[in-house]
């Protein structure tokens, strides 16, 4: 097997993982833009998406696309509830208490799922069966195609939402300047709620496409952390940055595992995170000042 062929396989794996990371990173970004809060429960939205979908499919016997759709809606509702019950009362709290509250929420989600669904992995079938696809010499499973396609579609829809709809524009306005938005009659609180719903829905989409690989109550943690690294790498508070960050992180990770060593695969993401934070806290893409002294 030639080196170039191997390289191609690593790249393809990196891009599919990157799609997932990008979705989760977008979730972080949307909430950060509207509330200046890092939502440490973002990974749990992914897990909830997979768990809800598996329940709807296996217990309620709905079809795959229907259970996928409903699970996304349900997780969005969870996100909105989280905002109303927990984040809203803390809107004037200290940064530390905001961080601890979202961490508390993530632990609570994990605990509830463990209580209700137990400790075993939950599965749904792969979205389509059949032989994996070939791209030159690289091979990739059908599910990875689904992951990539659905991730790209979600990003496209999100982009359209921000650019074309009134609500989307209002959200952009809010993140740019809350006071000014209020003055022009935008209901900032509605926008915050919307952003939580949107962010949770994106997490659930990621969870849905990952559901065939099996998820259980604590599976969200790793995804949350990776998406979080991606969001920072791309520059927090920037949608395009989050997407680029996701793909960059995915590809670098797989290249590192393939070419150097798979031992330090996880540490690699965090080294990148730290390097970016210390050298370019505004992210790799744009020139914007991060919150530093």
């Amino acid at each position: 097997m030639k080196f170039a062929d191997q390289l191609l396989q690593y790249l393809i794996n990196g891009i599919t993982n990157g799609g997932i990371y990008a979705l989760i990173a977008l979730g972080f970004t949307i909430i950060y833009k509207s509330t200046d809060i890092i939502n440490f429960a973002q990974g749990e939205f992914v897990m909830l998406g997979a768990v809800f979908m598996s329940t709807l499919y296996n217990r309620a016997h709905l079809s795959l696309p229907v259970s996928f759709g409903f699970s996304v809606l349900a997780v969005a509702a969870v996100g909105i509830l989280m905002e109303v019950l927990m984040i809203h009362p803390l809107r004037d709290g200290s940064v530390i208490s905001q961080i601890m509250a979202t961490i508390g929420a993530s632990i609570f989600f994990r605990g509830s799922v463990m209580l209700i669904w137990g400790r075993n992995d939950l599965f749904v079938p792969f979205f389509s069966c059949g032989q994996p696809y070939r791209f030159f010499s690289a091979i990739f499973d059908r599910q990875y195609v689904w992951i990539l396609v659905i991730a790209l579609i979600s990003m496209g829809v999100l982009h359209l939402f921000y650019e074309k709809t009134t609500h989307g524009k209002a959200m952009t306005a809010c993140s740019a300047n809350k006071k000014a938005s209020m003055l022009v009659g935008i209901n900032v609180q509605t926008m915050v709620i919307l952003s939580f719903g949107l962010s949770a829905a994106l997490g659930a989409v990621a969870g849905g496409v990952l559901a065939p690989f099996g998820m259980k109550y604590d599976s969200g943690v790793t995804f949350g952390l990776k998406g979080f690294c991606a969001a920072i790498v791309g520059g927090l508070g920037n949608n395009v940055g989050a997407m680029v960050g996701g793909f960059v992180l995915g590809v670098v990770e797989e290249l590192g595992a393939g070419l150097i060593s798979s031992n330090y695969k996880n540490a690699l993401s965090f080294c990148i995170l730290l390097a970016v934070l210390l050298i370019r806290p505004q992210g790799i893409l744009f020139i914007r000042s991060g919150e530093r002294v």
Partner: peptide
Amino acid sequence: LVYGLVLI
């Protein structure tokens, strides 16, 4: 579960 709840 209790941890999360207590924390929140």
